[in-house]
Structure formats: C-alpha cells, structure tokens
Simulated scan of single mutants.
Amino acid sequence: GLSRAVLVTEAPTHSGALITARLANEFGRDVYVLPGRIDDENSKGCLGLISKGAQALINEGYVLELLSQIPELDPVIPRENEPTQQLSLFSASPKPVPVPAPVLSLPPLQQKVLEAVKMEATSLDAIVQQTGLSAAEVSSTLIELELLGLVSQLPGMRYQR
C-alpha cells in the first residue's frame, strides 16, 4: 500500500526523484508513478520507471483502492495493573517517559549525517556545514536515513530526528 511507498510524479531522465525511487526500491518500498506524455522531458524518467516495473497510477480509483489497503494502527491495550493515562484535547500532555534509542550499526557516513540532525528542525545547510560533506552526499544520505525511518523531512529542506 501507499503507507510504505514512494510516488514519482515528474522526473526528467537524470533527476533526484529517480535516485530516490531506486533507493526506495532497494529498501523494499513500493514505487508508484504518475505517467505523462511520451514527448515531455519531465515524463521520461517516470516512463523509464514504469518500464522497469514501477506501478503506474492510471486513475483516481486505483489510488483510492491503494489507500484503502493501508493497515490501521493496532489499538494499545493496557496490561493488567498497568496505569493508563487519559488524555483530552484540552488537557496538558503528560511528561514524556524517556525511551532508550535502539542501538543501530550504521555506516560511518550515515552515522555522521544522523549525528548532525537534531530533534528540532535542522536545515540542510546546517547539516552540510556541521558534517563538512558535500550537499550531494548529505542529501543522498538523508534520503537513506529517511527510508530507514531515522529522520523525517520537513518543509523548507529541513530535517529532524
């Protein structure tokens, strides 16, 4: 379903969207493509992805069918003798309980970029400056980290853990 998918809507032959699609496919994500005219330069990458097995989104019915396949989150059922926290939209949220981060063995480049991404929004420029890497290296590594679920992209080329 679309919950673990990448959707490419426009991609010239040599575009970053194609790199993202390739990485997503390598990480086991589904790749969907919105096809375009065969004479449009911005469609050539998308059409190439379709020829390599990406799924073409041909109408809104197909998209709605895919959306209906997204699994719902399982409800959290408290165990016996475990206190439950009741929250309301208007009450203050409880203090978060620190959860130890899982120990991951990342390649040095991914580890270096991940360490530069803060819990609050961090700009791409700040990450490049802190790591001393090129913008291209940082950008492609951030895509890998995003696919691993370790960082998320925010509007304005900002990232956070």
Rank of each mutant, 00 (worst) to 15 (best):
V128H: 01
G1E: 01
S93Q: 15
Q86L: 15
S3D: 13
R161K: 13
E41N: 13
Y159V: 04
T141E: 01
G45P: 00
D39I: 09
L109A: 12
P12R: 07
A21V: 01
E60N: 06
P12N: 10
E60F: 01
A92P: 12
L67S: 03
V113I: 13
L106M: 09
N81K: 15
P35Q: 06
L49W: 03
H14S: 15
E115I: 01
D30P: 02
I58A: 11
V103C: 08
E80R: 15
D74F: 15
V103G: 04
P108L: 10
V151R: 00
A54N: 04
I77T: 15
F90Q: 13
L147S: 04
V63F: 05
A92L: 13
Q69P: 01
R158V: 07
G61W: 03
A136N: 14
S93P: 08
D39W: 08
P83M: 12
V113S: 02
L147H: 01
L49A: 09
G132P: 07
I50A: 06
Y159W: 11
C46H: 05
G16F: 06
L148C: 04
P107F: 01
G156F: 11
G28M: 06
L114Y: 00
Y62D: 07
D40E: 09
N59M: 08
M119S: 13
D125S: 14
L49D: 02
L18T: 05
L114D: 01
G36C: 06
P98E: 12
P107C: 08
I77H: 14
G48W: 06
A17K: 03
L23Q: 02
E146D: 07
S88P: 09
I127R: 02
P75A: 12
S152Q: 07
S68N: 08
Q86V: 14
L145V: 00
E120N: 11
E144P: 03
Q160P: 04
P96E: 11
K112P: 04
I127Y: 00
A135I: 10
R37Y: 10
E41V: 12
K44Q: 07
A101R: 08
Q160A: 09
S93F: 13
L150C: 02
V113G: 02
E26H: 09
N81A: 15
A11G: 09
A135E: 12
Q111L: 12
E10C: 10
D125P: 06
Q85C: 15
A92N: 14
I70D: 00
T122R: 03
P155Q: 13
A116I: 06
L89T: 13
T9P: 06
L124V: 04
P107Q: 10
H14M: 14
R22V: 06
E65L: 01
I77R: 15
I70Y: 00
A5K: 00
L114N: 00
L67G: 01
A136K: 10
N81Q: 15
